[in-house]
Design a protein around this nucleic acid. Sequence first.
DNA 1: TCATTGATATCAAGCGCTTGATAGTAGCCA
DNA 2: TGGCTACTATCAAGCGCTTGATATCAATGA
Lengths: 151, 151
Amino acid sequence: MAGDDEEPVGADALDRLVWALRRAELAVQALKEQRLRPLGMMAAHYTLLMTVHAEPGLTGAELARRLNVTPQAVASLVARLEKREQLERRAHPRHGHVQELHLTDAGRTALRAADEAIAGIERQISGELSTPEAAQLRALLDRVAESARRA
Amino acid sequence: MAGDDEEPVGADALDRLVWALRRAELAVQALKEQRLRPLGMMAAHYTLLMTVHAEPGLTGAELARRLNVTPQAVASLVARLEKREQLERRAHPRHGHVQELHLTDAGRTALRAADEAIAGIERQISGELSTPEAAQLRALLDRVAESARRA
DNA sequence: TCATTGATATCAAGCGCTTGATAGTAGCCA
DNA sequence: TGGCTACTATCAAGCGCTTGATATCAATGA
């Protein structure tokens, strides 16, 4: 055809699913940081605390895989949260070298406050969607995530 | 109630929309990096080139707002892409101090190759969804993004 | 005409994350 | 029992991004 190479890339590139996904996540992430800042917590800290809360006793390496970052990055975050007394490292019962991560009471308190802010964002966003729409969006996102991870 | 404070945060925190959104974006982003690496391009470069392609003549500051990063970060990326001859800075017709950004032919070629990889990811992901599902997901994501940005 | 305002670009310093490399420990198997 | 392998944790160096501050220039208003 004559028009095949008029455009170096498809004009619909910005209408793609992956682009819409990025835009949405970027906007939500910015909102998270904004709401979490007054609480003296960063989104990365919230994510880490929430992950450890969901799976207590997680090791640093395992946590790094969950968060898609390197073990060193996790160690840096853990060190800071440990200094704030929000997280503690305990020796693994079998592996003396390995350290399990657990939330402290202060960590749970901080997490609860942060989660209140995140829940507010969730309410606001899902409030503009009908209940079935929200459920379907969640289901579709899960399928997208699994599809990308399986690739 | 007795069980109100047994859990510091709602047990459904991981079932939230914002969490599913993050998981999906993280997985897709990792896939992008993986597919773009063999082409010697990073996801950030692709995003920048695509944005400039969509709006030629964009200034650095304007571009920074589009990408949700600081002007300095953009300047760093631009300098690198300029060194690769994929991007060029031209003086603004009215504002001598301001510089417009334009893609070079090499930039368009590189963008086309990169976009091929991204399009492959798009096909793979949307291939696991029905056509109406993909359309609805895109529409819902746009509403989420606008809702978060408006907050 | 000239000062002020607003926006751009750029420099400098600090911090967080990544890649690469090293040390320690449990599990497996000959 | 001894050695190999796999996994964990940590150190060191480099790079990219952020915050903060500075210089330049167009546009506005007195």
